[in-house]
Nucleic acid binder design. Sequence first.
RNA 1: GGCUCCGUAGUACAAUGGAUAGUAUUUCAGAUUCCGAUUCUGAAGAUGCAGGUUCGAUUCCUGCCGGGGCUACCA
Length: 595
Amino acid sequence: MDLEFELRKSIRNAMTDLFGQVTATEQLQPTNQEFEGSHTLVCFPLTKISKKSPEQTATAIGEYLVSNSGIVTRFNVVKGFLNLVIADQVWVEVFKSIYADKNFGLLPSNGRELMVEYSSPNTNKPLHLGHLRNNFLGYSVAEIYQALGYTVHKVQIINDRGIHICKSMAAWTLFGNGETPQSSGIKGDHLVGKYYVEFDKNYKAQTKELMEKGMPEAEAEKKAPIMLLAIEMLQKWEAKDAGTVQLWKTMNGWVYEGFGSTYKRMGVDFEKLYYESDTYLLGKDEVLRGLEQGVFFKKEDGSVWVDLTGDGLDQKVLLRADGTSVYMTQDIGTAILRFKDFPKIEGQVYTVGNEQEYHFKVLFLIMKKLGYPWAEKCYHLSYGMVDLPTGKMKSREGTVVDADDLMQEMVDEAEKQTRELGKIEDATEAQIKELSEIIGLGALKFFLLKVDPKKRMLFDPNESIQLQGHTGPFIQYTHARICAIIRKAEAMGVKPNEGELMQVTALEPAELEVIFMINNYINKLNEAARDYSPAVIANFAFDLAKGYNQFYQTIPIFNESDAAKLKFRIAFSQVVADVLKKSMRVLGINVPEKM
RNA sequence: GGCUCCGUAGUACAAUGGAUAGUAUUUCAGAUUCCGAUUCUGAAGAUGCAGGUUCGAUUCCUGCCGGGGCUACCA
């Protein structure tokens, strides 16, 4: 049964019968811990139609609900707040329908489609901590929408062209001596990153040398030989020079192989990859069309601009004076291409750091001005930077935390803890490795996802892997312990079934509390989707685990003499484990059955 | 300078305009005849400042202070 629906219906009936009209949205919220009840109706806004004081309004509705709703047994009024006590029988009924629904938390297809872009790295260096937040966020938002019945297309655009990759190519040509991932044993993306660093080192040295010979800084920066080589390579690449393209393909190939294994370990996936080398020429026609339509304008030098001063923004260039594209041009083209590739999507979510907020504001405005209705449904999933206890990550100071290294450290730490605790003595080495992977990555993902995406956050590796506190492993542990209980119940031959659940007529407060939370799961999924915030689900999972631990601590399970109650508590534990697992799943986190 | 986001216990995070601002960690004091104590209970501790709107403001508005980001014919 849908408790909230029934309750709202009864409240509206009450208002109609008592006051002759209803409000558009009655304000129903969870009751504060200190008062009796589970649902609270906020009655201040109702006084306009009730023509009574908040207390009188609340009391009148409360009395009506007790006599007419069939689900409310008691109520109390504190100021304008009407706290409602739902009958235990009703809670058992609510629980039963959740228990009976094997697909609880996974809604059937709603026929709607959405695209989520995330990751989208440059191909000149390996992924770092910031990319981890990006990937986990994008993946999780996609999973949340999927759980709600959407068809979600996960994509990314790979920035595989441009001066940045030519820099790595130039350095490799000069100093590589034919080094490959195979010959060196270095992961492909790290190898290319190594030459990017190598480029930078030499470039700085050469610039300095030229300046010492009396060349002004600006000129030296342009004339450093290694930079000239990179620029030459970019020009050759654009002219489709065979050798340059071949080298470019080879080095990008190394990067993709490296990224591939990183994504695999992260547990993220993509339905389709867009490559900038394929899309960077798109968008120009669209801009010219917009120019004809008068959406854009041309300056005397021939460059094409959009004027957004009327929208509180600036003027923005879309085509350079020489007719070439800028980044924005390409993004316009890519957006349109994606809607052609996936005609049924109603919008796109772009998971990109908050330093690009202005860019996306402009992009969406341009799409709107060009007359694309889906522009309204595009969302920039903007997220803040990740800081470390040691401070800010800065590439110049070499304090960037590498994604592969960090994942490995987390897994190593998880393995160390697992072995020390020695609760998995019967496990094989392979099982221990697998478990460490689950815990280490779970710790990392949970910590990065539990914070509101748009906020800048601090990642504390040590805190994240603790098994007590607001962490992934705490939830994983709770799940594992429930699994132990269920194993024991099975061994004892205790098998709950739907029919017998209704024999339970009274619930403990801790049970009621947890059923309330579970019953709220779909609401939380909707809230998380609406706000594009996996943090909502992360906090839900944590609260649920904590709620179950209170039950676990205060209520005996196997010492219960009443067979119906014992079965109910086993079923109850099963449902909690299931919902923990599902809520962690949409975060991309797995939960072990033993740890 | 302009635009924008953020300022909540020592620390890290919560709070569709609603009740005495929650949680974790830390510190202190307790709890397990039973299921995995990696647990649970209790105590201590916070809304940057000044106004405004409201029955009611951490939330909305204005100003100030502090921090991040953007502000390229870069990506």
